[in-house]
Write a protein that binds this DNA or RNA. Structure first.
Lengths: 213, 213
DNA sequence: TTGTTCTACTGAACGGCGTTCACCGCAGTA
DNA sequence: TACTGCGGTGAACGCCGTTCAGTAGAACAA
C-alpha cells in the first residue's frame, strides 16, 4: 500500500536530480549559461519534463539559493564553543567571506545576481534566514554586554555594518573588480578590522542606531 | 572635400544613437532584458546594422561602462576647493554611494553585473580609471600627512578599505538584499564612519599595508 | 482479467534571442 | 556614364524559456 509513498519518493528523487544537475552546471558555467535544455540533457529527460517539478528556471535557482543559505548557516552554526567575544564575531564574518570564496556561485545566487528572482520577496521560504540573523545579532549583543563595545551600541547595527564591510570585498573579488594582484583576503581582513575597530572605539561623526522595520 | 569627415561624423552619430538607445532601454529594463532587436527598433535600423558599429552586445555595454566611469569621475573631480581633510575623504566616498543610487544601472554595469564582459581585462580602455584612482590615493595621502591618521598609514589601503565598505552597502541596496524598511543611506554612512574611525584609531589586530600589484 | 483513470513524460511548436551572410541600392569617384 | 565600395537589409542558423496536445504505462475498480 506504500504506493503513494513510493511515488512521492520518486518525485523527490527526480527533483533532487534536477537541482543537482543545475548546481553542477551553474558552478561550471554560471547562471546565464545554464539552460533548461542542458539540465534536461544531463538528467536524460525532455526539457518539458522539468516543468512538472519546477514552475520556471528561476524557481530552480531559488531552490538552490535556499540550499545555499542552509549551507552557509551549517558552517556558521557550529556549537558556539568559545565564549562570546570579539574574536568570535570576527571569525563569524570571516567565515562569511570564506563562504563567498568556497561557494562563489551559491554566493552569487544569494547576494549578487540580479537576474535571480528577488529573494527578499519570498518571505515564508526564507524565514529561517531571518531567524538565523536574529540569532547572530543576539550573539553580538552578548559581546556588547560583556563591555567590548561602547555602552548603548546597537547589535543590529553592528551586524549590518560588519556584514556590509565584508560583503563589499566579497563582491569586488567575485566580480573581478579588483586590480590584478590585489590581495582580496587581506583586504577582507583589513576592512573588517577597520570597521570593528571603529565600532569599538565609538563612531564619532553621525552614528545612530538604524531602526529596524 | 569634407566627404570623409562628414561620413565620419555620420558614423559617430549613429554609434551615439545606438549607445543612447541602449542606455535608455537598460535603465528601464535592465541588461538582461535589452536585446539587439529592441535597440535596433528604437533607432529604426535593422538588427544587423548594429554590427557595423559594435562587434557584439557586450561591446555596447562595455562602451556604456566607460561612459559610467567618466560620469562618476566628472562628479568626483570637482575642484578640490576645500583643503585636504577627513571630511573631504568622507564626502568623496559618500558621493560614490550616491552615484550608485542616482545611476544604479551604470553602477551595476561598472561594479556588479557579472554578465558584462570583464572590465579589468581592458587595460588600455580603462587606463583612465587607474589614473583617477591614483589621484584619489594622492588626496588621501595628503590627509594622512596632515596627521589625521596614525603615522605610517598606507593611502592605498585606506582607499581600498573605505571603497569596500561603501561598495558593500551599495550592492546590498541595489540587489535588494536588505530587509524591507532597512535604511540603506544610514547604513552607508555608518559603515563608512565605522571604517574611517577604525582607520583613524589605528587597527589593532592584523592590519598591515596591502601590497599593490 | 478487463476496462478505466490518472500521471509522468514526450515531441513539436511559439516567439524570442545574438549573430552571420549573401545581396542590393546608392553615394562617391574616375 | 561606368565602376567601386560601403551601409544597410532580409533571411537564416542555432540557441533560449515555456506551453500544450497527445501517449505509454502504472494504479486501481469491476
Amino acid at each position: 500500500m506504500g504506493v503513494k509513498e513510493r511515488q512521492e519518493r520518486e518525485r523527490e528523487a527526480v527533483a533532487r536530480g534536477i537541482l543537482d544537475a543545475a548546481r553542477e552546471l551553474f558552478v561550471v558555467e554560471g547562471y546565464q549559461n545554464v539552460s533548461i535544455r542542458k539540465i534536461a540533457e544531463k538528467i536524460e529527460y525532455s526539457p518539458a519534463a522539468i516543468y512538472g517539478y519546477f514552475a520556471s528556471k528561476d524557481d530552480i535557482f531559488l531552490a538552490l539559493a535556499e540550499e545555499g543559505f542552509r549551507l552557509l548557516f551549517a558552517g556558521e552554526a557550529h556549537p558556539p564553543a568559545a565564549a562570546a567575544s570579539v574574536d568570535r564575531i570576527r571569525d563569524g564574518f570571516l567565515r562569511f567571506y570564506e563562504f563567498s570564496k568556497t561557494h562563489p556561485e551559491y554566493f552569487a545566487l544569494m547576494f549578487v545576481d540580479r537576474s535571480v528572482p528577488k529573494i527578499s520577496r519570498d518571505w515564508a521560504r526564507f524565514g529561517f534566514v531571518r531567524e538565523m540573523r536574529a540569532t547572530m545579532s543576539a550573539g553580538i549583543q552578548s559581546v556588547i554586554d560583556s563591555g567590548a563595545f561602547p555602552p548603548g551600541t546597537d547589535a543590529e547595527s553592528v551586524f549590518r555594518i560588519l556584514m556590509s564591510a565584508v560583503h563589499g570585498v566579497a563582491v569586488l573579488r567575485l566580480c573581478e573588480r579588483l586590480a590584478p594582484g590585489e590581495d582580496a583576503d587581506a583586504l577582507a581582513r583589513d576592512t573588517l578590522e577597520a570597521a570593528l575597530a571603529g565600532l569599538r572605539a565609538g563612531i564619532t561623526h553621525t552614528f545612530r542606531p538604524v531602526k529596524c522595520n
